[in-house]
Design a protein around this nucleic acid. Sequence first.
DNA 1: GCAGCATGGTAAGGCTTCCTGATCATTTTA
DNA 2: TAAAATGATCAGGAAGCCTTACCATGCTGC
Lengths: 295, 295
Amino acid sequence: MLPELKLQPLRCVLAIIDQGGFHAAARHLHRSQPAISMAVRDLEERLGQPLFEKGNGKATLTPFGQWCLPRFRELVAHHDRVSRDALAMASHQAGRVDIATVPSVASRVMPGILASFVIDFPGIEINLQDGHSELVSQMVLAGEVELGITSLWQPEEGLEFIPLLHDEIGVVCRDDHPLAGHARLHWRELAGQPLIRNGTSRLLEGSPAAELLERSALYISNMISLTAMLEAGIGITTLPRLAFQEEHARLRFVPLSAPRLERRIGLICRAGVSLSPAAAAMQRHVMAYLTDRGA
Amino acid sequence: MLPELKLQPLRCVLAIIDQGGFHAAARHLHRSQPAISMAVRDLEERLGQPLFEKGNGKATLTPFGQWCLPRFRELVAHHDRVSRDALAMASHQAGRVDIATVPSVASRVMPGILASFVIDFPGIEINLQDGHSELVSQMVLAGEVELGITSLWQPEEGLEFIPLLHDEIGVVCRDDHPLAGHARLHWRELAGQPLIRNGTSRLLEGSPAAELLERSALYISNMISLTAMLEAGIGITTLPRLAFQEEHARLRFVPLSAPRLERRIGLICRAGVSLSPAAAAMQRHVMAYLTDRGA
DNA sequence: GCAGCATGGTAAGGCTTCCTGATCATTTTA
DNA sequence: TAAAATGATCAGGAAGCCTTACCATGCTGC
């Protein structure tokens, strides 16, 4: 029913007008002149009307051709725009990545990663959100973000996990606390200390140190409140090293040597769904960045 | 540089999504299923990114594919719109004709022509202007209108003339005028009559009756003023029959038999420039209409 | 007036593209 | 577990498209 207007012949028509002749158009399109003639003839046959005046030496548009010209030009421009955009998207020169991470990663790891990423891929827009680890998993599962960087408590259905970092658990206390000078600690040394639980405390579960949790009366999820408590000397807590904010001069981090505990931080994304080009670039970038510096 | 996105593969992608699978798309596009697979693969290679998820049984878009889909849909829709409009234009189902005629033709001939034209070509827009014959020629030459219907004083460079009607010259006078009862007149019978010249009087030039013009003191170009003068009995005039308005009960038209004069009314258009499809349809229609009824 | 150069159109051959039909591997369904 | 449906792959052939060579025509400068 509808004739299929191929783009190449349309380009020929535009080139003939813009370059002022069949020969010039042929040169411009890197074709031979007969190719131009035939493309035009084929197009005219499809439309059922001549586009160019015949007989006179010069290449002139018929009124029908004049009517068609701007529409052809628009269509070709539209094609080129789609083609260019798609190529930019595919080659990581454009696009958008939405990432969610736990706060510790967002503040301690992501800045370095993103700083180099935006240099390598200046066209890609980045959207970084942070939240506790279960929220991160949920956002990835729901498709709100394509990538997550977090620790998984357990393998979750529908999520793929790529390990990135081992994040060692330690004890955090004020610098004048008796434990502050230790190079490492056995969990029994914490017995009797006022332990403040936080969102990462469940990392102790399943280890001998778990019984410490049972004797803890204080739970604080907010990190700012927690550090304020610690600085006030109200008690001690356990944290992964990344979550420990080194800029607090009066707080000390002492690794827990027995049991040696860690959280495994990794990249998560939905299983079975491939990433957008931009997200794939980010994923590769994250992995290269963290393996270069040693996990 | 830019990959050439052919429309057929894009249609394949749309069909796969809309019909829900490669086989369904193949049926819908009247192609074999491998053709669809190959078209998609080729398109993916051009873009450098997969559009469909591989491995799982179903046909699902990658995020990149989801990004592309609406753009592909737009581009294909744009193509179809251009194709449909161009075809409508070419096949006289749409378009526009601008015509200029002399007033007599506009009021006496065009109504019948246009009445049947709009039935045959309901999609074509018509723009009819009238003016004296030299204005008509000018408008055609300047390209303001594509077609003119008028009489040419002389063959004009750049204009093509297709004769349509012979329009006989006669004398117009009031019904109580001594000449009103004649069936025909010899020019000498007009001698001594007060002759009012008008825009068509130069048709007498070059004939024996030309000397009547020299003895005429009154020239009136406006047809309404002229008929008012005639009805007032101020004088007589000469007019082509078509220009004589029969609805004036008190005026009579008496053909001039010696010399027998006529103006040749015809279609004019620019030489060497082909007509738009709509104008060509109009031209054919006018010629068929007037030859059917005898010139 | 005629050679020379430009225009665009035409014809025959070859290369590339694209489609088909048969077949395969995998997943879903009964 | 057999059957059906999915999409992928491959070889062969048809069609489209491009190229080289040649033709017809119109303009230009001597």
